[in-house]
Amino acid sequence: MVLLVSLAHMIKKPQPSTSPDRRGFMRGVLTMIAGGFALLGPLLGGLALLLDPLRRNRNETSGAFIMVARLASLPANGIPMKFDILSNRKDAWNHYSNVPVGSIYLRRTKNEHLAAFNIICPHAGCFVQIDSQKPQFNCPCHESQFHFDGTKANPNNPSPRGMDPLQVEIRNGDEIWVQYQSFKTGISERIPTS
């Protein structure tokens, strides 16, 4: 601030003055202070509004078990099927209830082993799809490939890790419940986000 004032001072006074003009300098400081205060409200307010998203709540559904499907809808043939995760979601002023907030792949093998994967590609967050030619997952964005058990099919693919497995439970005989979570993309570690 003082620096600014002295700068302004220097610009305003092109002719060489031997002794610094004390009164002029004080006036400069006062001008800066007054102007600064006048702008303070809008500036701080604007900044606060801009930063508001940083303090919004995290997604409520994170980490909770959600019923996804019944066993009957998942053939035991080892081919993964896509299911939507229905939950409540806030989008600023709108509250939506029971809308798809994400998707997962469920897979049931011949020996009745059940597995769930988040559909989100650990590379950059696209949705992994089932390849149209080979029995494997394929990410359409940068061609990461995964085996149906979620592991990377090709070590040179861009994804830093295999697909993200989720906890599955059978409840009440035939209901498939999944602990829905997403993880930070682009790193080899699995850090839950929301």
Binding site: L50, L51, P53, L54, R56, R58, N59, R89, D91, A92, W93, N94, K184, T185, G186, S194
Partner: peptide, 22 residues
């Protein structure tokens, strides 16, 4: 979000929250 240190904050500020929306 990959950019060091502020990545995640930057991402949240850009998209105005946790998810894409209004």
């Amino acid at each position: 979000s990959l950019s060091p240190v502020f990545g995640t904050y930057l991402e949240r500020l850009t998209i105005g929250g946790e998810h894409f929306g209004h």
